[in-house]
Design a protein around this nucleic acid. Sequence first.
RNA 1: UGGGGGAUCGUCUAGCGGUAGGACGCAUGACUCUGGAUCAUGCUACGGGGGUUCGAAUCCUCCUCCCCCAGCCA
Length: 568
Amino acid sequence: MALTDPAPPTHFIKRIIEEDLKTNKYDGRVMTRFPPEPNGYLHIGHAKSICLNFGLAETYGGLCNLRFDDTNPTKEEFEYVESIKEDVHWLGFDWDDRLYYASDYFEQLFDYAVQLIKKGKAYVDSLSAEEIKEYRGTLTEAGKESPYRNRSIEENLDLFRRMRAGEFQDGTHVLRAKIDMASGNLNMRDPVMYRILHAEHHRTGNKWCIYPMYDWAHGLCDSIEKITHSICTLEFEDHRPLYDWFLEELGVYQPQQIEFARLNLTHTVMSKRKLLRLVEEGYVRGWDDPRMPTISGLRRRGYTPEAVKDFSERIGVAKKDSMVDIKLLEWCIREDLNKHAPRVMGVLRPLRVVIENYPEDQVEELEAINNPENPTMGTRMVPFSRVLYVERDDFREDPPKKWFRLAPGREVRLRYGYYITCVDVVKDKKTGEVVELRCTYDPATKGGWSPDGRKVRGTLHWVSAGHAIEAEVRLYDHLFLKANPEEVEEGGDFKSNVSPNSLEVLQSCRLEPSLAGATPKSRYQFERLGYFCPDPDSSVSKLVFNRTVTLRDTWAKIEKKMKEEIKQ
RNA sequence: UGGGGGAUCGUCUAGCGGUAGGACGCAUGACUCUGGAUCAUGCUACGGGGGUUCGAAUCCUCCUCCCCCAGCCA
C-alpha cells in the first residue's frame, strides 16, 4: 500500500452527510435522533444505532435527540423508559434538554390528521380489522377499496372527532390515509393512521383513546424536530414513500431517511420478542442477565462502554444483511481490559499445596505487578505461606506432551513467588481423587528468579490458603450453541439451541486478600484466567464475581489439536 | 407470479475505471515470571454469463441467489 496515512474510516451515511453539508442542503445543520420504543430493554444492536446517531451528530457538529416512540400504550412502560435513559448515558452520550416523546406531539398529530381529512386525503373506515385485512389484497393482487372510502369530508371530520371523544368501542373505526389500494407497495394501500384504544398511556394517562400508528407518527415527529438525517433500519425502506407522502401532502419540513442493516451477532438473538421469551420462560435470570446481549446484561457482565463503542465502530455501517462474529466483541473487551484492568490472583478450583520445607508459621509479603501493560499502576503485596491453593487444572498426574505445568516431579514457578517441585500426591483413599500436593520450594528463587539461571516453562497463579478470601464465581459461555440460533430442525424453534452450559457457578473459589471489598464497578484480570468483575449480588459477607471473558487460551488450542491428531 | 433492498477473504468492511486493502478469525514462528500481552510471517474473496474499454469489483446488459413487506406492532 501507499505510504500515506490510511483513509479515515467512512461509510455511506457519512458520505451522504458530507455531501449535504457541501451543498448546504439543511443550512449546514446535522440533526439526528435515537427513537426507541419503551417496550423492552436495549440490546447491542441498539447500541450500534445509538453510537451511529449520537456519533454522527458529534463528528459533524450537530445534535442528537432522544425520542421515545410511545404510540402504543398497551406495550409500553415507564420502567423501560428509565432503563433506556440509563443505557444511553452509560454508553457516554447525552441529549441535554432534548428528551422528547412522540406523545408530546399527540395534539399536533391530531391537527395534522384533521388537515388531511379536510384535504380529502384521509377517511374514517368502519370495516373490522379482519375485513381491512381481506380488502388489503396480497403481495401479487391489488386490494379493494373500502365501501367507507368515499364518505364526505364533513362526515369524516365528525366521526374522527367522535373517535377522539370516546364515543366508540375499540376496533369499530380507524382513520386511514386515502392513497392507492392497488399500489405494489402494501404500505401505500390506505394505511391506518389512528386506531381506537381505550388504554392508559404511561405519560398521557387517559387523555386519549385514539392513538397514532407508528407510520403516521414517526415521520412527522422527525419533521417537527427538524431532523436532517433520519437513520433507521432496512425494513423501513419501503415505508419511506409513505412518510414522504404524508410530509408532502401536509407541506411540512421533510427530513431525509437513510436505512442501514441492523446488527446480528453469532451465538445470540437480537429481537426484543425473543429476548423477552428467554426472560419470561426462565432461560435467563432477567433482562440484565450477563448472558444477554442487552446493554444492561453486557454492563453486568463487565463490558465497558469503551469496548462497546469500539465494537460499534469496527463493525461498520452498510446495507448488506450480515452476522458479526461474537469473537470480535470479545476481542474488543479484552483489548480494553488488557490495558486498564489490574491483575490479581484467584483460584477458581482450588487444589491444596503444602510446601514441606517452608517454615510452619512464616508469612512473606511478595511484591506483585498490578499491570505489566501500564507500570504506573504500581505494585501490591501478596502474602505467601506454607499452605497454598493452586488451580486444579494446573496439575496432571499423567501429563501430556508439551505440558509445562505441575505434575509429579515437575518444577514450576509460582508467580512472584518461588519455584516449587511436586514431590508427592495425596489422594482420597475411597475416591482416588487428588486432594493435596506435597511440594518443596527452592528458597533461592524468591520473587520468581533462579540465581543459577535454570529455566522453568510453567508459571502458575496461586493464593495463600490462610489469607485467601472465599468467593462465588460465575462463568459464562455463549447463550446459544449454534452461531445462528435460528437454524433449527423442522418445526423446532430457537430455544432448542440454547446452550446447557452457558452458566457455571463455582463456589469456594479463593481470591487474594486485596480483593476484599471490591465494588461492582471495578474490573480485574485474574491472571491466566480472564477478566472478572463483582456482581451486584455481592454482599459484605460474600463476594460474587462474573467472568466477563476468558483470556486467549493457547494451551487449550494445543491440547485440542493433540487430541484431534490422536483420533486420526 | 407485486413492490423495495442486497451480493468482495471464514466473518465484518474498504475500494467509486488503473490491476483487491484493513480488522477479527485461523495457522506458523519469535519473545515472555500470565501458554496473557507484544512482534513477525502466512491464509483458495470480487455470485454467474455476455458487453463497453488499452484496462472493469467499479460502467452497460441478462441471469442467479439472499433479505424485507399482506399488524388496528414498532
